[in-house]
Design a protein around this nucleic acid. Structure first.
Length: 578
DNA sequence: GCCGTTTTCGGCCCGACTGTTTTCAGTCG
């Protein structure tokens, strides 16, 4: 059973426990454990059932017992029992904004309401206004919230990082131009570069006297579709595309503390604050305060961390996965940066399904600072992407070799191919691969095979020794297509045995291999190639998304194949061929 | 339920906004 399923089950159990009146701290413990499991790099079920020692914050004996039960029986007795005590639709109520545990219980117990439909009817009839803490206005808000909720049900709940990044950067540019704004930066899970983002958190430093005007300007921007809440320090809006964006205004002396706080993650912040409490300090978005409530830090993030005895750490690491202990001991790893990337080993041109010519791609990559590229068209079996035939491939190689002279000294150009891994694990155009400088093997068809067959298929391709790198291993497309069933651990072991690299495909909808896989690769010593898979010159910039994921996986330059110089890459390839 | 160079029991992050209130509970992040 995979970590996601276990995490989801624990999250559901927390909701059910909450509704059935379990003590709050126990409920919270399940949520904490759920998030910890979601972010755990290995299969937690395997780890626990094999009797290995597990050290994961928030997962104690009770959780381990439940993970074992889930892994062996596929379900949780406790969850099924508790669910029997609850009417079916009650859980939906808590998904409505403005409805939490108390209100859900209230309308259920006082009015017998157990579904969103019933709640809407009651609100429209004015049948809720006499309940405690209810009134006409709240009924109105509830009806609007239900309408919006129904509309949202069809829209995505989370947005790809790339789309959120673009929106956030545009909003920040707009905000920076507002009078009185001293600084503006986005925070939240976007700053941590999660692969998808639920909402935007934009942070502003400004004098308090400007706050109201800034909030007015923010809530009347043309991008705004709806205002959810508006105050002097916080205003939440829904943008026209459906994305929620929160603006916070803080004094300049608190900007660092606020940036730290709103960057999260929540678990990271809780762990930080717990350390602060032990030091008799208080951390809030306004700063770090001593026992006498005197501010001792807040202007910038580094001093906030320093005030509680921690090293500053990159946002991508802040998930409470052990980074705090490392920061305590000044032992944080150095993470890979965009500037470290010397090459890009996966891209297409008009020869297959790309939009730009060979010359355009090479020149654009050179301008972007790459020292080498591999041109990797699709192989013949991928007809839909104009996969090259034997003859076309040979002619293409010839053209690439000729171009080498033109770019001599400025750029190393590798003649490559993205060979299709066929259903049985054989490589498309296997006879042609030896003449190439670089070979990627990727699965493009029959993505819905069962786990065992798919794993066998990919492992066979790797063990052929004919590929240098496994391309977009899981085949997922965020929001469109689930990852293929694949035993990543077995695949990584095969890569390790054969000295083959794994790709971190930076295309924003792929981000494949995902961060947990990249983390496992790092731990196993499998090199990761951060590639753009660009189909146009514009898409060469996708590398910035891959870098975000790589950093979340704690990859340093030494774990990344494409940080090597062209010479070192050639040597690496020669060594693995021998 | 988890956790521990103050604790194996007794804690468990902190503040803004809203609606319904005359001081606060609930929700959210």
């Amino acid at each position: 059973m995979d970590n996601e399923t276990i995490a989801r089950t624990f999250m559901e159990l927390a909701d059910v426990l909450e509704l059935t009146g379990e003590v709050q701290f126990k409920v919270r413990a399940f949520r904490t454990a759920s998030r910890a499991i979601e972010g755990f790099a290995e299969s937690i079920a395997d780890k626990v059932t094999s009797g290995g020692k597990l050290k994961l914050a928030g997962v104690g004996d009770g959780m381990i017992r439940r993970i074992k039960e889930l892994a062996t029986t596929g379900k949780l007795e406790e969850l099924d029992e508790r669910k029997k005590q609850l009417p079916g639709g009650l859980m939906d109520l808590m998904n409505l904004p403005g409805i939490g545990i108390k209100t859900a219980q209230q309308v259920w117990k006082e009015r017998g309401i157990t579904s969103v439909d019933e709640l809407e009817t009651a609100a429209k009839q004015g049948a809720l206004r006499d309940l405690p803490r209810f009134g006409e206005k709240r009924e109105e808000k509830l009806i609007a919230a239900i309408t919006a909720w129904r509309k949202r049900a069809s829209a995505p709940k989370r947005w790809p990082m790339a789309e959120a990044l673009e929106t956030a950067e545009a909003l920040c540019a707009r905000v920076r131009a507002m009078p009185g704004v001293l600084e503006c930066q986005f925070a939240g899970s976007l700053r941590r570069r999660r692969e998808t983002v639920g909402d935007l958190d934009i942070l502003v430093a400004a004098e308090a006297s400007h706050a109201i005007a800034i909030m007015d300007a923010w809530s009347t921007m043309p991008e705004v579709a709806e205002i959810l809440a508006k105050g002097e320090t916080k205003t939440s809006v829904v943008l026209k595309g459906g994305m929620q964006a929160d603006l916070r205004v803080v004094p300049r002396e608190s900007f660092g503390a606020a940036l730290q706080y709103f960057t999260g993650s929540k678990e990271h912040n809780v762990a930080m604050r717990t350390i602060a409490v032990k030091l008799k300090l208080k951390v809030s978005e306004y700063g770090v305060f001593d026992a006498k409530d005197k501010s001792i830090a807040g202007v910038d993030e580094a001093e906030v961390y320093q005030a509680i005895g921690l090293q500053w750490m990159p946002p991508e690491m802040r998930e409470n996965r052990g980074e705090i202990d490392l920061a305590k001991n000044d032992a944080l790893p150095k993470l890979v940066e965009l500037g470290d990337l010397k090459g890009d080993l996966h891209m297409h041109t008009v020869e297959s399904d790309g939009k730009s010519t060979l010359e355009e791609m090479i020149e654009a990559a050179r301008m972007a600072g790459r020292k080498y590229v591999a041109i990797t068209e699709h192989s013949q079996s991928l007809a839909i992407a104009k996969g090259v035939t034997k003859e076309r491939l040979r002619a293409h190689i010839q053209r690439i070799r000729e171009l080498r002279e033109k770019f001599d000294g400025k750029m190393t150009i590798l003649a490559g191919l993205e060979s299709d891994i066929l259903a049985d694990g054989a490589l498309d155009m296997a006879d042609e691969l030896k003449q190439l400088d670089w070979v990627i093997g990727s699965v493009h068809s029959k993505l819905d095979m069962d786990r065992e067959s798919m794993t066998k298929r990919v492992v066979r391709a790797i063990e052929s020794g004919m590929i240098d790198c496994l391309g977009h291993a899981t085949g997922r497309m965020l929001g469109h297509r689930e990852a293929s069933a694949l035993d990543i651990e077995q695949v990584l072991h095969a890569l390790k045995r054969t000295g083959t690299a794994i790709e971190l495909n930076s295309s924003p909808l792929r981000l494949d291999i995902h961060e947990n896989g990249a983390r496992m690769a790092r731990d196993l010593g499998v090199l990761v190639a951060i590639n753009s898979d660009a189909h146009s010159t514009r898409e060469l910039s996708f590398l910035k998304y891959g870098i975000g994921i790589a950093r979340r996986a704690w990859l340093g330059p030494e774990h990344v194949l494409t940080t090597k110089s062209a010479k070192a890459l050639t040597e690496w390839r020669a060594a693995r061929a021998s």
